[in-house]
Design a protein around this nucleic acid. Structure first.
Lengths: 361, 361
DNA sequence: ACCCCAAATGTACACGCGTACATTCTCTCA
DNA sequence: TGAGAGAATGTACGCGTGTACATTTGGGGT
């Protein structure tokens, strides 16, 4: 019955309710506002009366009106590429990052506004701020292409707080939170060297993602550190999809059979899995004929045969950290310095990274 | 330079801009509003002048103020369980449904407000509407437990538009969009029967999810349709996680080796994969000693060895349909009838569902 | 008893839009 | 040419908050 009454009120008498609460508590509307928003000084006894009156009349302030009055949307925008069917990135990646962002945003009283960016769509991020839909935004899956650079430059111009996840741009010091892929790949190489491998290949992703370059750099550094040559013919290119890994399997199998490669690192797990499948079909045994290491340590690597050694990336923490830092910047607005966080990764070794008879034979 | 000027304006002179646009175009603010919102009659020539003035002054109406004035948040809420680390559902599931919702919402001019529900948190969905944060909401991963029922009843009482995804409640005719799991399982059983299997087991998920019951029902119906007995000892219980499938593998292996089972259907792919791994360790060969069918046809089933036969569920379409129907209801408010959509599923056969030497031996 | 200051509360209004209603313009038809 | 009707536009205000400023209250020190 109360609920029903309220249903009607909700539609036409939103504003009048506050007045009624004020009357019932014997105070002015301003005091009601002060009590419910927790701002300003108010006698404890009065506060109790107001709370009780509000409870009794089932009054809750309208977030819509509050945000309008405060000129803050209270929303944290999250921009991510639309990813139906085509799983360019792994869904694991997105759901972890998103969860991290969501948890932190919630703790700090922000709502999450999800914004899917379609591939061909013009990237007008600044408009989100102009229309006051968000107070800050996190951009996932950004690429180093002119249109993206332009969109980000516009954000910078407008002094709109934003943060990149797993991406950075040469020459720009945009806020970003990333994994230390470079160190991760370096350690992957070191691990393979320790296993006795000497001819290590690398299956990378597109260079529009800065972490592709980071990984390659780590790979190269670790080789040079061990006085081994960096050979371009051992570096292959995929697009982070399973299919692209599968397609490169023939080439890799040929290299293995010719004795040109005894190990390979794939820049993400999906490509590693495609590779694994393709190699299996070509009769190359991963973990025996060749060692294989993936990247991300997504949940699927435990399900393959053999299980995949992989570089664990703290995606949840990346999301959480990005949201936290960004919301600091939103609160501080001008006073806060730019940040560029790199979170540590960790190599998780499993059966796939045994090489050339090291284990089984 | 303009951008910088605007940066300042954005903070203090939001409202004054519209006045300037009006002056520049030689009209009143009301006309500016009419032109930009596309409501009311305006001479074409005037409209052009206003558009040009707005462009020149870089004016865009504040969505915040618009929504406040219209008393509509413009947001479609999506409630989903927080899923970091523990992948109770597959991330594939969520990302597909979410993408479907997102695409439709975008087409219809709504924004997506993402709301993570933490396990222990009280479910107060109605408050989202009271505070006017959303105009409607979609609930994913709802369970048939008292607290959830109470929260939904409150929504109903308040006449708030909402829609369930993949869940329904006996005795309530809430809006819902679901997959036809019952038919799907029936066809899975039929397929196994056609393969020559006669002793078909079933690994189900918790009964708090209505689709668990639907699947079991389809399984049972197909057996009875073939004049085969429904044997409770062939029905096992997991919790939709890979681990739970893995844990049941020993029991299943025993059943297989004792000749009590020649096929098994798992209620989702994750459990099927856990099962597959466990059976492999127990020396039971899937696709030879026992047929295995999963459910969801998520992207991982193509990566296992052998590839998994699975029931394809159109998750993207489910999300899309839910959003579409719900937004209709939001627009129509009282005039719209409740809906209860069931989308068709499709059995995708792969190597895992060959049984007892039907193929290989 | 008086004053002063801080705490507590009330009054009044801005926030930026949409729109009901009033007004002016324009064109047609008598 | 005038009137009438509909299109085009202007005027004025409400939407539900937060808060600056004014006012009242209460208590301690002289």
């Amino acid at each position: 019955m109360y609920a029903c009454t309220f249903g009607v009120l909700a539609r036409r008498e939103r504003g009048l309710i506050r007045k009624k609460v004020a009357e019932l508590a014997g105070v002015s509307e301003a005091t009601v506002s002060r009590v419910l928003s927790g701002v300003g000084t108010v006698k404890e006894e009065t506060a109790r009366r107001v709370m009780e009156a509000a409870r009794q009349l089932n009054y809750v302030p309208s977030a819509l009106a509050q945000r309008f009055a405060l000129r803050r949307s209270g929303n944290l925008g999250v921009i991510l590429p639309m990813l139906p069917k085509v799983n360019l990135f792994s869904t694991y990646y997105f759901s972890e990052v998103l969860s991290g962002i969501g948890m932190t945003a919630k703790q700090r009283g922000y709502d999450l506004l999800l914004l899917f960016r379609e591939p061909d769509e013009p990237r007008d991020y600044a408009n989100l701020f102009r229309t006051q839909k968000v107070d800050g935004c996190i951009i996932i899956g950004a690429q180093d292409v002119p249109s993206e650079r332009a969109a980000l430059a516009e954000l910078r111009e407008g002094n709109h707080p934003f943060c990149l996840v797993n991406q950075r741009y040469d020459g720009e010091d945009y806020n970003s939170v990333d994994a230390d892929q470079r160190t991760g790949c370096r350690e992957a190489v070191r691990h393979l060297l320790a296993q006795g491998c000497r001819k290590i290949g690398f299956l990378n992703g597109p260079a529009v993602y800065s972490n592709s370059k980071d990984r390659l750099r780590g790979y190269r550094e670790a080789l040079e550190e061990a006085w081994l040559a960096f050979l371009p013919e051992r570096v292959l290119l995929g697009n982070y999809s399973r299919t692209s890994g599968y397609q490169q399997a023939k080439a890799v199998a040929a290299l293995v059979q010719a004795g040109h490669i005894d190990a390979i690192i794939a820049a993400n797990d999906r490509m590693a899995i495609g590779l694994l499948q393709g190699l299996k079909e070509s009769g190359v045994k991963v973990g025996e004929d060749v060692a294989l290491i993936g990247c991300d340590d997504s949940d699927i690597v435990r399900m393959t045969d053999p299980p995949l050694t992989s570089i664990r990336v703290p995606f949840f923490d990346i999301g959480s950290e990005a949201a936290s830092r960004l919301l600091d910047a939103v609160a501080d607005q001008d006073g806060s310095a730019a940040f560029d966080v790199k979170l540590p990764v960790k190599l998780i070794t499993r059966a796939s990274s045994s090489a050339a008879g090291t284990t089984k034979a």
